[in-house]
Every structure is written in structure tokens, then in C-alpha cells.
């Protein structure tokens, strides 16, 4: 059954009609055209569809859209401000931490959640936190370097 869903997406309010069975991924892609949100495995095992809900990473392929009622959702489209990329996006570009790029939006949001929660993680903490995001190009070395570069930018700069 279609019902109204009200939530905040990338800093704006949204009111949409959604089916009870719609996943958040379907609503973000099909209704809001947020193409950075991508389905990978569809069973919550690969982290590709990661978005942040109230700052915490969730698998949007498994989460029913209705669960987002009243929540704040962030996708990669909401990261840049005033035409300037977010420091984590800059770090991924500078370290060239992407190959085919399919997993990249999910990784960037997981890194944001990690650094928001723990601004100076150990190597083990980085690996543990990012272990839910899979990269089939296996570019993990560059991704870890990007985490460190983003961490340094946040430490030295005013932007987070």
C-alpha cells in the first residue's frame, strides 16, 4: 500500500509516496534519482548500497524505506557543499583510491562514519570498520591510504 514518507535527505526535507515493501535503495534511486546509491549483492553483504542514517552506515538494499521516517539520510550527493568536494572525496581522488568505481560511494560514506566516530583510528580499527564494504578490484591498499589522507585533512583543516 502507498503511504506518505517524510524524512530528510542530504539536508532537505522530502515527502514521498512509497509502497510498504519499497526498500530505501529503490526510493533513493527511482524516486529521488540519487544514482550514487547502487545495489551490489542485494543481500546486505557487500556494502555497496551503504548510506548514512542519522550518521550511521546502513545497507539501503535491506532497509525498508518506511524505516527512514523522520530520519536524516545522507548519500554522496549530499557530501559536497558550494561546489567543493568533501575532504574524503578529495582524498579518494588524490590517492586514486578507485578503479572501476562501483563500490566507491559506499566506501566514502563508511569512511565518513568511521572518522566521525573515531577521528584517529588504528590500522586494525580501519580494517574492522571497512570490512563490510567489498571492492572487487581489491584496491584496498589505496583506500586505506585515502582514509589516512582524509584523516590528515580533517585534522589540519576546518572542514570535516
Amino acid at each position: 500500500m502507498k503511504r506518505e514518507l517524510a524524512f530528510r535527505i542530504n539536508g532537505r526535507s522530502a515527502q514521498l509516496q512509497v509502497e510498504d515493501a519499497d526498500t530505501l535503495l529503490e526510493v533513493l534511486r527511482d524516486q529521488l534519482k540519487l544514482w550514487s546509491v547502487r545495489e551490489g549483492c542485494g543481500v546486505g553483504a557487500c556494502g555497496t548500497c551503504t548510506v548514512l542514517m542519522d550518521g550511521k552506515p546502513v545497507s539501503s538494499c535491506l532497509l525498508l524505506a518506511r524505516r527512514a521516517e523522520g530520519r536524516e539520510i545522507l548519500t554522496v550527493e549530499g557530501l559536497s557543499a558550494d561546489g567543493q568536494l568533501h575532504v574524503i572525496q578529495e582524498a579518494f581522488i588524490e590517492e586514486r583510491a578507485l578503479q572501476c568505481g562501483y563500490c566507491t560511494p559506499g566506501f566514502i560514506l563508511s569512511v565518513k562514519a568511521l572518522l566521525d566516530e573515531n577521528p584517529a583510528p588504528t590500522d586494525d580499527e580501519v580494517r574492522e570498520f571497512l570490512s563490510g564494504n567489498l571492492c572487487r578490484c581489491a584496491g584496498y591498499g589505496d583506500i586505506i591510504r585515502a582514509v589516512r589522507a582524509a584523516q590528515a585533512k580533517r585534522h589540519h583543516g576546518t572542514r570535516v
Partner: peptide, 18 residues
């Protein structure tokens, strides 16, 4: 036949030095 049962290399499978 799904990524739940068929695990692929994650960041935790990266060697210590590579």
C-alpha cells in the same frame, strides 16, 4: 550462490605488507 555464503577478499584479507 550469494555473497553471504561465498566470501570474497575484504580489506581484512590484505596482507600486513604488500
Amino acid at each position: 550462490g550469494s555473497l553471504l555464503d561465498y566470501q570474497i577478499a575484504s580489506v581484512k584479507d590484505m596482507p600486513e605488507e604488500f
